[in-house]
Write a protein that binds this DNA or RNA. Sequence first.
DNA 1: GGTATCTTGCACATCGCTGTGCAAGATATT
DNA 2: AATATCTTGCACAGCGATGTGCAAGATACC
Lengths: 212, 212
Amino acid sequence: MTTQPSVRAPRRDAAENREALLAAARVVLNRDPSGSLETIAAEAGLSRRSVYGHFATRDDLLRELVALGANRVVDALATVTHPDPLTRLALIASNLWREVESVRMMAVVAVRGPLAKNTASLLRPIRLSVGDAIRDGQHDGSMRTDLDAALLTRLVEDTALLVLEESSEHPLAARDGHRLVMLMVLGCVGLGWRDAGAFIDAEPELQWKERH
Amino acid sequence: MTTQPSVRAPRRDAAENREALLAAARVVLNRDPSGSLETIAAEAGLSRRSVYGHFATRDDLLRELVALGANRVVDALATVTHPDPLTRLALIASNLWREVESVRMMAVVAVRGPLAKNTASLLRPIRLSVGDAIRDGQHDGSMRTDLDAALLTRLVEDTALLVLEESSEHPLAARDGHRLVMLMVLGCVGLGWRDAGAFIDAEPELQWKERH
DNA sequence: GGTATCTTGCACATCGCTGTGCAAGATATT
DNA sequence: AATATCTTGCACAGCGATGTGCAAGATACC
C-alpha cells in the first residue's frame, strides 16, 4: 500500500539541498543558537521559503538535526567497553569530546534548550553506560561513595557539559579539551588531581590521537 | 539646579508597587526565566500597563532586579576573609549557596542569559576573590597546579553554578546543597573526595548553620 | 475637599518571527 | 523537447511580545 502517485523519482538536487539545510543549521545554530530560518536558509544558499519544501516546521528541522547528532554520538560511544570503570568513564568522556567538540555550542543548546527532553531521551544510552560505570566504580571502591549514584551520574554529565561550555567561550585546542574533560570527570568521581593526571598518563587508550 | 517641577512628594504606594514588581519578577522569572511582563504584573497584582509607570523598558526592570541580587551577594561575600585559601574558597562557595539557593533559576539565567555581560561585571568582586584564593592555593601547594589559574577560576565558578542548576532540576535540601557545592569546588581545585570531606568536617566555619 | 499622583483599560503601532498560497521561473530527468 | 519537480519572491495572516497615547477612574496626600 505504498503511495505511488508520482511517475518520476524525486530530483537529486532536492535531497542535496535538504542536506545543505541541515549542515547550514548546524553552522548557524552553533554560532547563534536562536538563529532564524532566514539565516539558516541564507547559509545554505536557499530562500527561507524553500525551507518549507523540506521541513514542515522549524521544529522539525531542529529535531532532525539533533537526532542526527545524537545518533552519531551514541554510535561512537556504543563501542566503549572496558573492564575498569574509571578507564571506561574516562573513555566515554574522551570520545564524547572528540565527537562533540566541533559543535560545542549547538550541543549545549540541544541539551539545555527547549528540546532538552527530546535530546535527553535520544542520549539515554549514554546516561545508562555512565550510570553503569559509576555504580561499578562505587562498588569496587575506585569512585567516591559519599554521593548517590544517580546524583553522581548527573554531576558527571554536567561536568562534561561544563567543559564544552567553557571551551565555547574561551576556545581550547581540541587536544587540551580532551585532557581537561577527562581530568574534570575523574575529579568529579572523587580522584585527586595528581591521581587523575597519573591515571590518564598511565593508560595508553586515554592518550590523544589525531583524527584518522 | 535640581529639577523642582512637582509641588508634592511621590506617593508611598507607588514606591511599594515598584518593590512589588521587583519581587514579582523575582518569583515569576525564577519559575519561568522568559516570563512576560503580563505575568509579572499579574503576580504583583498590577496591570501590564502600569509597569511602564515604574520602568521604562522590560530590560530596565530586569537589570535593576539583577543589580539588586548581585549587590546582595557581593556584599555577603565581601566579609569572607580567611588565611587558608582552601577554607576561604569553601567559605565563598558556602556563602554563595546560602545567598542564592532561594533564587537558583533566576541566578542561572542572570549569569547565562542575555544579561550575562552586565551580570558578570557586577559580580567582578567575587571573581577577583576567587581568583585570589586560587592563586594563593596554587602557591602554597594546596591546590592543583596543572591548570592555569584563570582557567581554574572559571571552572570553579562554573562548578558552583552547576550545583545550582542541578538543584533547580532535582531539588536539593538547602543543607545538602551547602555541602555539595563545597565538595564539588574543592574537588575542582584538586582534592580527592575523602580529603575534601574530611577538610569540611574538620573546619567549624564550614558547618551548616540554619539562617538566623 | 481639592489636587496631584497613580492605576487601568483599551486601542493601536511595531517588531521579529513562523507558516501559507500562489504564480512565475529555473532545472533535473526522461 | 516535454514535463514533473524544485525554487523563488511576494503578499499576507498570525502569534506573542514590547511599548505608547489617552481618557477615565481611584487614591494618597495636604
